[in-house]
Simulated assay, not measured.
Amino acid sequence: MNSYKIVKYASEHYVIWNEFVAKAKNATFLFHRDFMEYHSHKFEDFSLLIFDHKEKLRALLPANIFENNLYSHQGLTYGGLVLDENCKLSDVLQINYQLLKHLSEKGIEKLQLKIIPTIYNNLPSDEMEYVCFLLDANLIRRDAIAILDLSNKIEISRVRKRGIETGKKHQLKIKEEATFEAFWNELLLPNLKSKYNTNPVHSLKEITYLKSKFPNLIKQFNVYFEDKLVGGVTVFITKNVIHPQYIAGNAAFNTLYGGLDFLYQHLITTVFPNEKYFDFGISNENKGRNVNESLHYWKESFGARTIVQNFYEIETKNFDQLKSVLI
């Protein structure tokens, strides 16, 4: 086994961390420290940098710690081991051996992984799925994500076409906005409060801060009917994927105006026609055990099809199971 040095992240690693993320084969801007640290007060960061024997950084683990568990990171939608584009399978096996051995010796009993969905990778990178198999990792959750392949679009359903035509009939206008205040205060917050008695993951202050750090990667599109705000969407843009992070509208937005159909079709065909994938998100409840059928069907009626995101629980004491894999 090759030797690797594992170092806990500190502020002095800010530059090298972000430079690595920018070139990694399975990373997005969500792993940039400016994104991770907007909610640093909510989590005890335990992110790790993994160097080889030549002091070359080969992998990162964005993570937080809670009790005796290490999580890849609870404040992020996806995570896992972030890899150098030159990392081979043998490297990943040896890195995981050293990583889990290190964690076990530190008294950390379990590593909770939420694997990054394959469409977000810049290169093929399913090494961690294979590692989880070798370690007898416990699959604790699996989400079904509706993905539209923008280079191989399936024709949308007649129902969606009617919604789009309704939006055109009402002469809905879609504008990219520089700020989030109107959408957050008039639509998103009231909707989430009335329907689910909850708040968005990001406060208005937080999303505004993130926009200032990633101005080309976080965008707001509002929908207007006769100059009145009736709906909107906050979009996260990665190298391969467009993902609506928040969507909200008033009571008439869909029922009368066909607003959501019209808005999504506008994003897909006009704003982001040359991107690879459009991520409609999950339709799951109960840790993936249930699917909101009507919601998932709505996404599929745009031509989206399903991929999965896996969540694993690894017992760190199993690190020895990786020792004899390579023959």
Score class of each variant (00 low, 15 high):
270 T>S: 15
266 H>V: 02
314 I>E: 00
93 L>P: 03
207 I>G: 03
316 T>W: 04
240 N>Q: 11
155 E>T: 14
18 N>Q: 06
48 L>Q: 06
283 S>W: 05
286 N>Q: 08
25 K>Y: 08
243 H>W: 15
196 Y>C: 09
33 R>N: 07
304 A>S: 12
200 P>Q: 02
251 A>N: 14
80 G>A: 04
227 D>A: 13
218 I>P: 01
269 T>Q: 13
182 A>H: 12
116 I>L: 10
236 F>G: 03
303 G>C: 10
213 K>M: 09
192 L>N: 03
152 N>C: 09
74 Q>W: 14
250 N>T: 05
321 Q>S: 09
288 G>F: 08
173 K>F: 06
80 G>T: 06
92 V>S: 00
96 N>Q: 02
167 G>N: 01
151 S>N: 15
71 Y>L: 12
187 L>W: 00
191 N>H: 07
152 N>Q: 15
227 D>F: 10
204 L>D: 05
266 H>Q: 07
151 S>T: 14
217 L>V: 00
85 E>D: 14
24 A>C: 10
14 Y>N: 11
140 I>N: 10
312 Y>Q: 08
149 D>V: 01
24 A>F: 08
56 K>W: 09
221 F>R: 01
44 E>G: 04
161 K>N: 09
18 N>R: 06
191 N>P: 08
62 P>M: 09
69 N>C: 10
255 T>N: 15
239 K>M: 06
12 E>N: 13
79 G>W: 01
9 Y>G: 00
123 L>M: 11
169 K>P: 01
312 Y>S: 07
168 K>S: 09
72 S>K: 05
179 T>V: 11
168 K>M: 12
86 N>I: 00
47 S>K: 02
79 G>H: 01
231 G>A: 01
102 H>R: 00
281 G>I: 06
234 T>H: 04
306 T>N: 13
56 K>P: 03
299 K>Y: 14
182 A>P: 05
66 F>V: 15
322 L>R: 00
38 Y>M: 11
65 I>M: 04
247 I>Q: 11
25 K>Q: 10
84 D>C: 03
211 K>S: 11
